[in-house]
Nucleic acid binder design. Sequence first.
DNA 1: TTGGAAAGTCAACAAGGCTGACATAAAATC
DNA 2: GATTTTATGTCAGCCTTGTTGACTTTCCAA
Lengths: 166, 166
Amino acid sequence: MMADSGGGEGLLFLTDEQLRKGIEAMFFAYRGFTADPDRILEGMDYGRAHHRAVHFIHRSPGTTVNNLLSILAVTKQSLNRVLRTLVDDGLVEARVGVADKRERHLHLTARGAELERALSDAQRARMRAAYRAAGPVAVQGFRQVLEAMMDPEMRKGYHSLKEGNP
Amino acid sequence: MMADSGGGEGLLFLTDEQLRKGIEAMFFAYRGFTADPDRILEGMDYGRAHHRAVHFIHRSPGTTVNNLLSILAVTKQSLNRVLRTLVDDGLVEARVGVADKRERHLHLTARGAELERALSDAQRARMRAAYRAAGPVAVQGFRQVLEAMMDPEMRKGYHSLKEGNP
DNA sequence: TTGGAAAGTCAACAAGGCTGACATAAAATC
DNA sequence: GATTTTATGTCAGCCTTGTTGACTTTCCAA
């Protein structure tokens, strides 16, 4: 096999050609990554932005709008438009904060949780197949490279996204 | 720390929790992946769509419009809008085909190549830093997982994008 | 208690996807 | 030679999702 995991000599994996392949792999893989949820969303009135909101509300129930803003790194209005439709459609509940009444704490309703599950089941299925095909060692490398590719702030937030409390 | 990178038994790397982390890693890493070129493009009249076109024209000089359409998986109107501005601005040259005069073979001009280089230098720098930080073994795993995540057609096309001939 | 900051909402605009219809030229086929 | 198919371009119009700017409501601190 011979991975040349060694010291400084090899470095063939850092050639421009190798990097270009990595760049294109990211491009094509990301398309696959979003393809299944996108298929589910199309036909409903929702899009990828709704998926992201629902995902992170599921992940951090009770999170505030501001918190979500910093995770998603979009403007308030972009997020607000999405949240409004989700709240109007009864997928998300926005509870006025107890300590601070300016805040809205976000929770999925039963129907919201149902959509979340459909979307993440689809996305996880593809991820699981890819993980299984590549094996645990490859997965570890995958995670290492991705983490190194993030902006530093995100690398921090990524491990422990701030939780909101209701 | 404790990665359980072990043999086939564990399968701990296939838990929903691990998959969710992988999903979020893709999300945050992709944002980093596009951040630097996006910064360069903002202020010019161009966006990510222009970057993609310029990238693949650089990668496969002389490629046809149709070829590019299948790589980028967008509609011809979307691509055309982008190509028109690039041609008008003198970054891309569209040469009428010799064998088949219906085809347009796409090439970067000197200025187009200059923009391509600026964009890909920035993107490669981040990729290189990530690769270097993670090491060659991790990079191999990264590529394996990404490839397994692509749609099958793309997995084929990814290794040998059709070349165009002038 | 009042003035500033923070959280959220609304209005209007831009980029870049999309569909559908149609035009032209060239190639391929009958 | 006439017809059909292919490759490309273009117009009009729509949708999602990003943007900025202005505006409440609420909180907090001087």
